[in-house]
Design a binder for these strands. Structure first.
Lengths: 210, 210
DNA sequence: AAATATACGGGACGGTCATCCCGTTTGTCG
DNA sequence: CGACAAACGGGATGACCGTCCCGTATATTT
């Protein structure tokens, strides 16, 4: 079953983060930095393959650390979710910038759309869980300079100006269609099924001569 | 956050059900039938608007009955989910049959697709939760004579034969696209946003001259 | 109207987790 | 190499929730 309610304990807004996602005030000890990274990686993997309900104790056990270590680095489970997501955002915004230059607007948009779908397939439910807990992922990412939604929105606008995408499509429409490609309902999560779905959706989005 | 693991307590397969969803062996007392219906209705409403994590105690309280009454009618929370879903399936399969006669195959398919999306918008997550608990909704519904997926699949096949839908589309593709239109990501759940999404998807599904 | 089975209410129980705390270990700096 | 702060581990704590139970109330039957 599904638990959605969280006492939102996510109030702190770091004003800046470095590549390790930590506040500027203090340097982490070497072992601490190592453990933090390891927990982040293991958690991302486990949540992706087994769902978000895996207990924090289990994450700690499989990462080879104590539960105290996890909750010191990530005081609540949501903050762990958020850290994972921020990490992915960083990666994706880099790819977006690379795509935006060189190709025509339509190709860039459709390619980035496909990239997001495949990325999302690896981290189902993470964003939804955080949104449900009242944590605004998009804003947090934007503040860290990894504004993936903003980049997608821009690409959409350019693609529409270039006449490659239907003019009446909105950004929320695009988000919803992305989520559709990620639906759990698809029995075989293999790449080819995903690719066909993306093709259908892109076909629907494409502008065509009236 | 999300809990996905369920000790699957859903073993009993009623061999037949009547309109109230009860086994043939015994007639329910009048107050029992009333309470059952009331809980079913209230639960469907609450789960639809506030999510599946609302505690059973809360359902009982708002339905004006004791928790014992709920768990006597629906021994586990999953069985409550399943009862709600079966109720909707019954409704939908009727609509499908009405659509199947009279119109051309393409129109019937696209119309039923839209109907399912709008219905699904009212009951987000229910099907997923049950599937995650190992409960096969489709089979249960089919045994009760309300095989909605089967009807959709048939309509898809006919629409493809009639040349109205791309031939390479599979049934799982259609299910996934449906789920996409139902995505939580859509901020405004108003009807017009949904309608535009459905339009985009149908456009993508439509067969076009090569 | 009395008798009886059926259903009701809601408190109790047990299990699961996220989070906190504190005695112990270990990196870091002089 | 010694001292101190930082970080570690993992058990304790408390909250939440699904399910069960049983004394009480009420529909049904004769």
């Amino acid at each position: 079953m599904v638990k959605e309610r969280y006492g939102s304990a996510m109030a702190n807004k770091p004003t800046a983060t470095d590549a390790d996602g930590q506040k500027p005030g203090r340097a982490l000890r070497a072992d601490a930095r190592r453990n933090r990274a390891r927990v982040l990686q293991v958690a991302a993997e486990i949540f992706a393959t087994e769902g978000l309900s895996v207990p924090v104790h289990e994450i700690a056990r499989r990462a080879g650390v104590g539960t105290g270590t996890v909750s010191r680095h990530f005081p609540t489970k949501e903050e762990l979710f958020a850290a994972i997501l921020l990490d992915r955002m960083e990666h994706l915004s880099g790819q977006a910038d690379a795509l935006a230059e060189g190709r025509d607007a339509g190709t860039a948009f459709f390619t980035f759309f496909a990239t997001l779908v495949h990325e999302g397939a690896q981290h189902r439910g993470l964003a939804e869980a955080l949104a449900g807990a009242g944590y605004d992922v998009e804003t947090a990412a934007a503040e860290a300079g990894h504004d993936v939604p903003g980049r997608l929105r821009t690409m959409l606008g350019r693609a529409q100006e270039a006449g490659a995408v239907r003019a009446d499509i909105t950004y929320p429409d695009v988000k919803a269609l992305m989520a559709g490609c990620l639906s759990r309902e698809v029995d075989d999560t293999r790449a080819d099924a995903l690719i066909r779905l993306v093709a259908v959706v892109c076909e629907g989005l494409r502008a065509r001569p009236s």
